[in-house]
Simulated assay, not measured.
Amino acid sequence: MSAPTATESPLSQLYRQHHAWLLGWLRRRLGQPEPAADLAQDTFLRLLRPGVALPAELRAPRAYLSTIAHGLLVNHWQRQDLEAAYLQALAAQPPALHPSAEEQAQTLELLLAVQRMLDGLAERPRRAFLLARLDGLGYAEIATELGVSERMVKNYMAQAMLHCLRLRGDTSP
Rank of each mutant, 00 (worst) to 15 (best):
A3G: 06
A122C: 08
L14M: 06
I142P: 02
Q88R: 14
L39W: 04
L134N: 03
H18R: 04
M161I: 08
L167A: 09
R79M: 05
L14E: 13
A40L: 06
P33D: 11
G147R: 13
E123Q: 11
L11R: 13
L112I: 08
R151F: 00
D135L: 14
L137N: 02
P125G: 04
L23K: 12
A91F: 04
E145Q: 15
I142Y: 01
A113C: 02
P99G: 15
D135V: 12
V52A: 08
A56C: 01
A128Q: 07
Y64F: 15
L14V: 08
L97I: 00
C164H: 00
L137A: 07
R124E: 15
L26W: 07
R168Q: 13
F44K: 09
A40R: 00
T144D: 12
G147V: 09
K154F: 04
H70P: 00
W25E: 04
W77N: 05
D42W: 03
A96R: 08
L134P: 00
A85H: 10
L165V: 01
A53Y: 01
Y86H: 04
Q104D: 02
L131M: 07
A84L: 09
L82E: 11
M152G: 03
D135Y: 10
L162M: 12
Q17D: 15
R28I: 03
P10C: 08
T7L: 05
E103G: 00
L111A: 10
Q78N: 14
S100Q: 10
E123A: 10
L11W: 06
L137C: 11
Q115V: 04
S12H: 11
V74K: 05
R49W: 05
M161H: 13
I142N: 02
N155H: 08
E83Y: 01
S172L: 12
A6V: 13
H163F: 04
L58P: 07
S149V: 07
R126I: 08
L162A: 10
M161L: 12
Q159H: 07
A101N: 08
E83M: 03
M117H: 07
W25G: 03
L108D: 03
L110A: 12
R168T: 05
N155F: 09
R127A: 13
Q78S: 10
N75M: 06
Y86S: 01
V148T: 15
L82C: 11
T5I: 00
A132P: 02
Q88M: 07
E150F: 00
L87V: 02
R79S: 13
D42N: 12
D81R: 14
F129M: 02
R16W: 11
L112R: 03
Q13A: 14
Q104T: 09
A60D: 06
D135T: 10
C164I: 13
L11I: 11
A160W: 06
A140F: 07
A60G: 05
P173H: 01
R168A: 15
R46Q: 15
L97E: 14
Q88P: 04
R46N: 12
E145P: 09
A128F: 01
Y156C: 00
L112F: 04
T144N: 03
